[in-house]
Amino acid sequence: MIRLWRHLFGRKRSYQVAKDRLKILLISDRVNCSPEMMELIKADIGKVISKYMKIDAQNMDIQINTKASKGTQGKKTPILYANIPILDLHKQSL
């Protein structure tokens, strides 16, 4: 019965764990960019944006992905994604 409960609601299935781990692993593999460096980039971007608006630095998400994008004929180019939640657009009058 416990197994049934776990099966329905419980732990993440192991295929999902594998997939999630790979996604993170391959990001750094593909761009040859270490997680430490990503953290530095994240901190710097946060600093710059903070000059102009109030952001939620805790929940910032920075990723490098390779996606086929428009204008590259399906060729995969690395893209830097930054998801930065804004808390207040008008931090101060500039």
């Binding site: 299935r13 192991s14 295929y15 999902q16 594998a18 997939k19």
Partner: peptide
Amino acid sequence: RGDMMSASD
């Protein structure tokens, strides 16, 4: 069973 990635994964 959810314990191996599928081909589409």
